[in-house]
Design a binder for these strands. Structure first.
Lengths: 239, 239
DNA sequence: ACCCTTACGTCAACGCGGTTGACGTTTGTC
DNA sequence: GACAAACGTCAACCGCGTTGACGTAAGGGT
């Protein structure tokens, strides 16, 4: 654990790095996201990040107590990107569907960061804003509090779970993905019908489906169930 | 990448280690699982594994080309444990529900391994057996091939996604979990009603729900949707 | 204008990680 | 009894996160 916690708000003295860059929380987070995108999870190391910033790796510790805290900041930035520009439209199902797809997309745009971030509570501004928005949509739609919390919980877990899983395969280093693909072709695609009739019969369909995400369908299921629950406690279901 | 791929089947010469143990693929995998369970993800290192086996870390490379391949083997062992003792009961919904919960439980029993394994295609015997079984249940129940593949895909993705997410929070090192909990208490539980009315109003409900898994509910939703799809194409839905 | 506190970038080092190549010992085969 | 193959061990390489000491520049107080 680093000793140097971060005062977090006001920084006064700014000294440029040897190569001229001026460090900032935002600059570090943005650069980390770019490196994750371009070089995969193996691009997310303190030393490489320092190199990309034109600074020594140890300079990062003046801004974040460690990679763990930097990861939280990245998670929050992803949530920020997912939420910017969103406004509630007044129809809770459409609103939630929109939010779910936004979160999923934001995480998939940075798969490596998503894997790191999905299971953490960042507790930062944008994550809180997203939670507040989701709960607001549900409560404004007339869900009683316990039901709203149930749906909220399922909704968030599902979005993060699928984001993490879908992202995980994108996040793997290239060699690992190629290895997995090769393993699949070498085994599943060649299983004899005598021992594995079901796989053999559907091999072509299976292979075509391999890289699609099941999230949109799962999201619709969840919203349908929520609508039923609301309808049951509140009068006829809507839309 | 290691040069020494593994002949994989017949090994002849066996030499005990300095401390007497005789290495085996199975022994290595079992020991790795035990260490993951007892010491968390930070227990899963080649050196510690070697130490626990009473062997030099480099001895592992005679059995697995690298940690990547060892991870595949662990994933397959988890699937093995999930499937042992399972037999189809003839009612597809009950069968799939049982399988889903088994897979979820097997992964959660070794959270650290689950996180590593969920996104990989192991291509080994037990993973293939599970896939064959799932497809078999669906096709025997009368699902036409494209529908069977759709449901199979959603089912597997969902089980792995929730297993990975639920496992991820268990898999975090203790300090990280405590940090997340502290962050939650320090922020969410104290948000004023003026700025975050929805979170403030439901804070107690939210906190109580924090550590429950949403998987069983999500699984039931998926099965209901599958039943509807089958019913639509095949006559009336059953059970 | 001066100092002097304080922020913060840099350097060198520590311990640990995966992985490899050379080396030596055991084992089964002929 | 010789030989080849299997395989455990050793030493080393390089990269990782992190830390503590050190230098240096920016601002505020006087």
């Amino acid at each position: 654990m680093a000793k140097n916690a971060v005062p977090e708000e006001q920084r006064r003295r700014r000294r440029p790095t040897k190569q001229g860059t001026v460090l900032t929380h935002d600059l570090i987070v943005d650069t980390a996201l770019r490196m994750l995108r371009e070089h995969g999870a193996q691009g997310f190391t303190a030393r490489r990040l320092g190199l990309a910033l034109g600074a020594d790796a140890s300079a990062l510790y003046r801004y974040f107590a460690g990679l763990d805290e930097l990861t939280r900041a990245i998670a929050d930035e992803l949530m920020h990107r997912a939420m910017t520009g969103w406004t509630p439209g007044g129809e809770w199902r459409a609103d939630l569907r929109d939010l779910g797809l936004r979160i999923h997309a934001a995480y998939l745009a940075h798969p490596q960061a998503a894997v790191l971030a999905a299971s953490r509570v960042s507790g930062r501004a944008h994550e809180i804003a997203a939670d507040e928005a989701i709960l607001g949509v549900l409560r404004d739609a007339g869900f009683p509090d316990p039901a709203a919390v149930r749906v909220y919980h399922a909704f968030v877990d599902q979005a993060l779970a699928f984001a993490a899983l879908d992202a995980a395969s994108l996040a793997l280093p290239v060699e690992a993905r190629e290895a997995d693909e090769a393993v699949w072709q070498a085994t599943y695609a060649r299983l004899p019908a005598e021992t594995h009739p079901n796989i053999a019969a559907t091999a072509r369909l299976l292979s075509a489906r391999m890289n699609a995400s099941a999230y949109p369908a799962a999201l619709d299921l969840l919203l349908a169930a929520a609508a039923a629950e609301r309808g049951a406690g509140e009068g006829p279901a809507q839309a």
